[in-house]
Design a protein around this nucleic acid. Structure first.
Lengths: 242, 242
DNA sequence: AGACGCGCATTAAACTGTGACATAGCTGGA
DNA sequence: TCCAGCTATGTCACAGTTTAATGCGCGTCT
């Protein structure tokens, strides 16, 4: 049973900009299926085209690139509401892989229909460009973090980002926000070794800035984490939902 | 005297995908001015909106982000044909600054007219999304480089990218390709100290892989540089010209 | 024309944040 | 029950940073 766009649980979250009735009607028609994906499955492969694009309805994952020698760079973590596959849609092939860390539910769209968005719905096409620019902005922030910050600041930055994104998507619970990834994933995102990441996470725990365990992240005072991250305090910036 | 789009010196370069007659006519009307910018001037400021977007007709520059403590991350180098200001156009403000390293000539477009592209020219809107995805792809590659490569490999990767981009834009001369930036700029792009960058450039020179001096870069055998960069050999991938 | 000063490139030496290696304990799935 | 994978910790090595100094070239001033 697929979720009607009028019943979408994400649209009311502060993370996402509102949609008008015409846009919802168009998206309902544009959505071709809703698929369940088990944890561990790769949704999109680096270097390959895909006939589908996706919006994440439920679950979490990550985007990564590989070096020939097997080293992996995690380029982003995937949350509900993220749009997947835009590179394949406009450039013909994905430049990174996307894999499910937890079981996921995806709204699926046909790549062959993407041109209809540009032809018939310029406002939605504008939102797609907005999402691409949002990803570009995030990667610029990540590049700054890897290029100019030390390990403690990098981890503080990453945990703050992940915490803000999860809170704005309505995922906060009594134990904190769900963080289903491994320390290896965070190490590969921040250009650190696994051992050094573990030691630096321990330092953040001792400082009381962040506590990640059992698949949950607790941030007692986000301003403390923001200071360690050399970031200003504040919430996640809303973006279009596609 | 502005350059007519029919006379654009960039369109025939292998770096850029072809444009049809309708697209050229639209761009001629869309272009509001041609401006000269002296070396050192900032074209776009991080954190601020801009009423203009630009395509670089001539000259070179860089894009950068600043940390509160004054550290700078160079996020990309700017070449003829690059489109500047898309983040301001769709997100309302620039997420990085753009400054001229040499004297530059820019084709200028009004941000207020950007909606016309999406409404009237879906193929051009698609190209804009393509350009945003191209920048996202590049930043993913840069993130991989900073996260998983050592200093020698990073410099080899950067010089190879810059060389390929310049060659595909028709900038090759007897002394190599023009590289007007400082070692400080490359260091700030690759997350290295100035001293270590200088030493590693010397190593590449001794290896005969790359020779950067007097504002020019010579690459005797790009396959050698590609190997040091852990990259496959090949030319720059063509992209749309806006 | 000559002097001066600033910015950039280059090099040496000392220091350190991070990586590499090894080991132990815990947990969940087969 | 067993084992692979993950988390955690200690120790040592080193790639890269920091500090300091020198030389060169170019632009400005006299």
């Amino acid at each position: 049973m697929t979720t009607a766009c009028t019943d979408c649980p994400l649209r009311c979250q502060p993370m996402f900009q509102p949609m008008n009735a015409e846009e919802i009607t168009f998206m309902q028609a544009f959505k071709s299926a809703e698929v369940e994906v088990p944890a561990g499955q790769v949704l999109l492969w680096e270097g390959q085209p895909s006939p589908w694009l996706f919006t994440v309805l439920r679950g979490q994952g990550l985007r990564s690139k590989m070096l020939p020698d097997g080293d992996r760079q995690v380029v982003n973590f995937v949350f509900p509401g993220d749009f997947l596959g835009l590179q394949s849609g406009v450039m013909g092939e994905m430049k990174h892989s996307v894999e499910a860390t937890t079981d996921m539910t995806l709204c699926r769209f046909a790549r062959a229909d993407l041109w209809r968005v540009f032809r018939d719905q310029p406002a939605r096409a504008f939102d797609l460009t907005y999402l691409a620019a949002t990803e570009e902005h995030f990667l610029g922030e990540a590049l700054l973090t890897l290029g100019q910050r030390d390990a403690t600041s990098r981890l503080a930055w990453a945990l703050l980002r992940l915490w803000r994104r999860a809170v704005a998507t309505g995922m906060q619970g009594p134990r904190g926000v769900p963080l289903p990834w491994r320390q290896r994933d965070l190490a590969d995102a921040l250009g650190l070794s696994l051992v050094h990441t573990n030691k630096t996470l321990a330092r953040l725990r001792i400082l009381g800035a962040a506590h990640w365990s059992g698949g949950y992240l607790a941030v007692p005072d986000p301003a403390v984490l923001a200071e360690l991250a050399q970031e200003e305090d504040g919430a996640a910036t809303p973006r279009p939902l596609f």
